[in-house]
Design a protein around this nucleic acid. Structure first.
Lengths: 201, 201
DNA sequence: TCACTTAGGTACCGAACGGTGCAGAACGCT
DNA sequence: AGCGTTCTGCACCGTTCGGTACCTAAGTGA
């Protein structure tokens, strides 16, 4: 023991683990957690089930990794938007980002965190709960940003940060469903404009 | 032939078909189409698989009947709202109805038509498409109602009925997701109030 | 009573599900 | 070369999936 050698031992992995995860993410995105079978996942990843289990553990952990990648990639807009200078700009950037991500020129429509496991059987309860937390966290971060905006005088003093955050999140979820329904980015951007009409001065 | 006798022949059905359908609807509502297994469905319906197949055909047709019942029952608000006198009242009634239906005091949270099959495997493509049509139809009916409102001078002449209808539908979908996320009717009603702030005079 | 019709229960079907055991293949190290 | 280690491919595990064959139960009509 005590040997901290990091040299790679044994047979090297025969596939690009990052690319495989990216492809798995897209399958989960399109099919949801339960709708994505191991056969389809590994087929898209270009590896066998054995390799997948060796590299990721099991289906649920593969999903968790894919969700992590989704948050850092396609859904990064949710975090980036928080850096906008005003609350209005934050909300607008958040919703425009949601539109862009849910209607990619190629790839699945909608939002992984919404269609992943809105409703599911017993066995995927853990994944369902994970996604509930994920969505709620996004709302909390938005709420904190709006609270700061009130403190900074950027939002009127009587504005309710939690309420505004929930409103924006609701629009975001609705956009995800509309995107899955077939609406394109232009139509969704119009909806965003309509939603912003009532934004506090 | 020609015998139009309606007398019931053979062994009478041993269960209330209406009640069984109601219970199946609730299981689909909570679990989604794929997440609801025949075992859970028939268990909740209080009948065996054989009886279910004899009475409803198969799982997909059971879902179609359940969806029909959902539209006539819990989701009747979507049609009733159209009868309100003004466009604003229609939108408000629609969204309040969505809040009430997606947060029942007992029974599953969320909306059957949203969590039914947002994302799914190949085999339930037909159900997925059915729900896409269902949701789009609701939007079209709302759009027609708002178009009438413009004609009647109830909405400003430069208002875009389609855009408004899509906005309201988006809010409705978002509310369904928020309800599934655990938000209660009071919080959702606040969100509705916020959404209505930008409604055209 | 007896044929006819329909519903219910059991036991089963083939397929697909997520997940593994195992033998060999491919590497670094000595 | 030989060893330890890790990855891969095949075959297979038990379970659950939606769906059905078949026999019996329970009614009507004659």
């Amino acid at each position: 023991m005590g040997n901290s050698r990091k040299a790679v031992m044994g047979r090297p992995r025969g596939f690009d683990i990052d690319q495989a995860l990216e492809r798995a993410m897209r399958v989960f995105w399109a099919r949801g957690y339960e709708g994505a079978s191991l056969a389809e996942l590994t087929g898209a990843m270009g590896i066998t089930k054995t390799s997948m289990y060796a590299a990721f553990g099991n289906k649920e952990q593969l999903f968790r990794k894919a969700l992590q990648r989704y948050g850092a990639g396609p859904a990064a807009y949710a975090t980036c938007a928080l850096e906008e200078p005003t609350a209005r700009a934050v909300a607008l950037a958040f919703l425009r980002g949601a539109v862009r991500t849910t209607t990619p020129p190629e790839g699945p429509s909608g939002c992984l965190t919404v269609q992943g496991a809105l409703a599911a059987g017993d066995e995927s309860q853990a994944v369902h709960d994970l996604l509930v937390d994920w969505r709620n966290d996004a709302g909390v971060r938005l709420e904190e940003r709006f609270r700061r905006a009130v403190d900074e005088g950027d939002l009127p003093r009587d504005a309710d940060p939690r309420r505004l955050a929930r409103f924006v999140m609701t629009m975001g979820f609705g956009i995800a469903v509309q995107a899955a329904n077939g609406l394109g980015p232009a139509e969704l951007d119009e909806i965003v404009d309509t939603a912003m009409l009532g934004w506090p001065a």
